[in-house]
Design a protein around this nucleic acid. Structure first.
Lengths: 248, 248
DNA sequence: TAACACTGTGTATCATAGATACAGTTTTTT
DNA sequence: AAAAAACTGTATCTATGATACACAGTGTTA
């Protein structure tokens, strides 16, 4: 079992708090090189191919040598996420909160398209590195001049991020349900042959799938935010409008 | 490697198209009992505990006997999803599309709370069983009287479903990022100690976490749908308004 | 009715992946 | 120069999914 979960050690690794060792022989690589090797394997052979053995071989090492760089697979995953996620997006090109969030979504989507395995590995309760942490920080800045609560701003950011993740074209593995994969044509056939029990899905499946899913969701979601924001702005006669929800 | 993926065989299993065998000795159990045993293990010991060995032991069998019921672990996962997802929701109690979708979200959330491992296993390209398929079918019916395109209705349903999944209190493993887990307090500490680099996240983290995340997102999302729907209804002078987007 | 085919079940075995133990070797420090 | 510390490799362990195969029980059929 991979019960090797030490979040504290992971945090020290990701945030550069690990004391550099000086005594013995110099390591053949540094953490960045290890991370890059793992990313390369994931990009070319898929996330399932990323094993201790495979990554070590990529570096010309045995897997036990790799265990000197990372305490286990969870740490390897963490540093490859931090390496692949890239630098946080630049939102200074646009002005309104809406276009800023759109730009954020676009750049997030682009990052995940560069490394299609990212959505499926950045999942669950975990410690993020400084670069990855920069992403939600930038997204929050987009909503800074907004009458939303701080909590609501975070919720809004998660809403956008989760939507992009959910509609991400599932290369290796995604949360998406209705994309083209090996199972999709079978589901399609099953629905058409059971159109009496699932009339709505059956007719929908008969329509050629569009590529506008991600845009439609993002648009809908931003419309919803805009509704709340304009409503709050309208009631901004009272002082506390920016930090608490408007009364019914 | 678990390269045992035969979607056709899986479809036959889930949709009851497998010819019942008559010759040899009678099986000690049926598929429903196998599925229930697996669900029981997942509910009590977590999804990670669900192994061929463990489920077989739950039934008083060796794991090889279990391979006579299902062709592999993927099939076991499929039937336990179908068993745990429950019957599709009843939306007849409410009238408007909005309250219907709210009720759908509530029931979906409840189902996932009953089996906290469901969100993390119902992921990726896969074949769904008839009971699970009933869920999106019901959700689509909520939008039937709506000027949305069929494709847009499906997108809207996915939007709601994905949101509920993303904000699901991650019991075993979820897509959620900022919930209380073993990593959350560490992230909190890291952010507070690096408040200069992440001022917005740091101040947000200092606020006690609310439980309104799921409601806020759902509300926002439905507001967005309502915006599009009312806009379409207003322009419904021309006939094709119900099946194609309004012109700019 | 008896042989046969088929199927459920169990034992043994394999492959892969994560992980530990430990010896050998290299390099810095004292 | 000697000792301590750290990098690397070989061997081994455990867990899990999966295959091979022998044995046993049951229905079909000659």
């Amino acid at each position: 079992m991979s019960a090797n979960e030490d979040p504290m050690a992971l945090a020290e690794l990701l945030w550069g708090l690990r004391k550099p060792r000086t005594r013995g022989p110099r390591p053949a690589f540094d953490l960045a090189q290890v991370a890059d090797a793992a990313v390369k394997v994931a990009d070319t052979e898929g996330l399932e191919a990323v094993s201790m053995h495979r990554v070590a071989a990529e570096l010309g090492l045995t897997k036990m040598a790799l265990y000197r760089y990372v305490n286990g697979k969870s740490e390897l995953s963490a540093i490859m996420i931090e390496a692949a996620v890239g630098t946080p997006p630049d939102l200074s090109g646009v002005t309104s909160w809406r276009t800023k969030l759109e730009e954020y979504a676009r750049q997030l989507s682009a990052a995940w398209r560069r490394h299609p395995w990212l959505p499926s590995i950045t999942v669950g309760d975990r410690v993020m590195g400084p670069r990855e942490t920069g992403w939600p920080e930038r997204a929050l800045s987009a909503l800074a001049d907004t009458p939303l609560t701080e909590r609501e701003r975070l919720d809004a950011v998660m809403l956008v991020s989760h939507h992009i993740r959910a509609t991400h074209p599932a290369a290796t593995q995604g949360t998406q349900t209705w994309t083209d994969g090996s199972a999709a044509p079978i589901m399609r056939d099953l629905l058409l042959r059971n159109a009496d029990r699932f009339p709505l899905l059956a007719t929908t499946m008969a329509i050629p799938s569009a590529t506008t899913t991600q845009e439609f969701g993002l648009h809908t979601l931003l419309d919803g935010l805009e509704h709340t924001i304009t409503q709050r702005t309208r009631n901004s006669g009272d002082e506390s409008a920016a930090s608490s929800p408007a009364p019914p």
